[in-house]
Design a protein around this nucleic acid. Sequence first.
DNA 1: GCCCCTGATATGTGATCACATATCTTGTTC
DNA 2: GAACAAGATATGTGATCACATATCAGGGGC
Lengths: 222, 222
Amino acid sequence: MNVLRKVENQTLHARVYQELRNAIIRGHFAPGEVVTIRRLATELGTSVMPVREAIHRLISERAIEMQGSRSMRIAMLTREKIEDLIRVRSIIEPEAVYLAAGRIGEDDILELEVLNRKLMRAIKHGDVDDKLLANRAFHFAVYEIAASPMLLQVIDSLWLQSGPYLQSLFASADRFHEELGTEFINDELIEAFRKGDAGLARRIREKDIRVSAEWYLNHLDE
Amino acid sequence: MNVLRKVENQTLHARVYQELRNAIIRGHFAPGEVVTIRRLATELGTSVMPVREAIHRLISERAIEMQGSRSMRIAMLTREKIEDLIRVRSIIEPEAVYLAAGRIGEDDILELEVLNRKLMRAIKHGDVDDKLLANRAFHFAVYEIAASPMLLQVIDSLWLQSGPYLQSLFASADRFHEELGTEFINDELIEAFRKGDAGLARRIREKDIRVSAEWYLNHLDE
DNA sequence: GCCCCTGATATGTGATCACATATCTTGTTC
DNA sequence: GAACAAGATATGTGATCACATATCAGGGGC
């Protein structure tokens, strides 16, 4: 049996990219927070080079914004941008669910039930980090089943940009599930998968995205 | 009156990125062609630094593939990848058309008619470059009307990856329009816009993407 | 004549340096 | 005491260098 840990094989800038990306997704940076290459390099213990490449990639993915010519900040989500993101997500993700419903197998469904239980446990007892990770794990497991690398890439990019929004949403996940009665919406989704009703599954996911966003936008002023 | 040309203000790596991106979209690189940073830097007359950043961005956008740890090539489109791209494009782009139909104005329609005439002229008399540019101009004009930056970004990324496919398709554009009788499909689209029939416009665009792809895939063996 | 080994070349990556300029600090003047 | 200007600092960008290693060529052994 091999007891060696898998050696860290990626290039440094790839690791820095993953590190920053995860930090952004988990909301470890405040939206609008100014980042500088040299500061991040110091914190990560590297030179500026890998950080430069990672940052530029995140800028091209719109997770970081170039302000002037010499100032970069974590992307801010205006109400307008959130509405746009949600509009696009409610087009694409339900369609991915529809595709997944056409290819899903019994073992996939069992796997989804496990992930959903983890998610519900995280929402009940976990911190925001747990909730976000469990939520991502569940939905990306669904999207993986759709077996479309392109779709997965697109959705991944949209979720990266949704980071701060999801962060806020799941910070009060129990409250909004309670108010909307959507606590068991993923169970409904799984049930639709089991019945083989792809259209229903699509509608459920669309409703989930839309209703959550409406609730969030209505409570934005608070 | 200011007679000065607008000074080239962007950073060098941004310009290199645009240069390479355009070259890929226009098919100036062969799919699978090996590219090296140093060679491109020499050709472009810069050091390796700007090229590095541009290349890494194109890799993250899947226009360039990292083969081993030390070899990069222009992305190749397998039949499988094309099918996936088309599947995703037939989901997203008709939806963008649907959104555009709900916001389009008479002046937009006039503009589209101009662009469509240019496209048809390019297909009749232009070279592949002209056809590709005119086609892109027409459809992106439609997508701009949808007024969704996110959607535009997603579609842009899909078109970048479709580069070699579109290149082949438009190389025989007149032939496939003749065989399929789709020469006036954009006129139909504009007509649907004029009637305010968003659903029809969506169906037309969906059919356009699907039928073109089927024709192309059927002729792939030749 | 074919295969494998070894040295040479090529290549991506990371670090450091140089530079222009945006941003902040501080001191001076009214 | 406040406003503005000049110097200092910080920062992104581009070039160059160093290095590990992948890739290739040529020669030697069987």
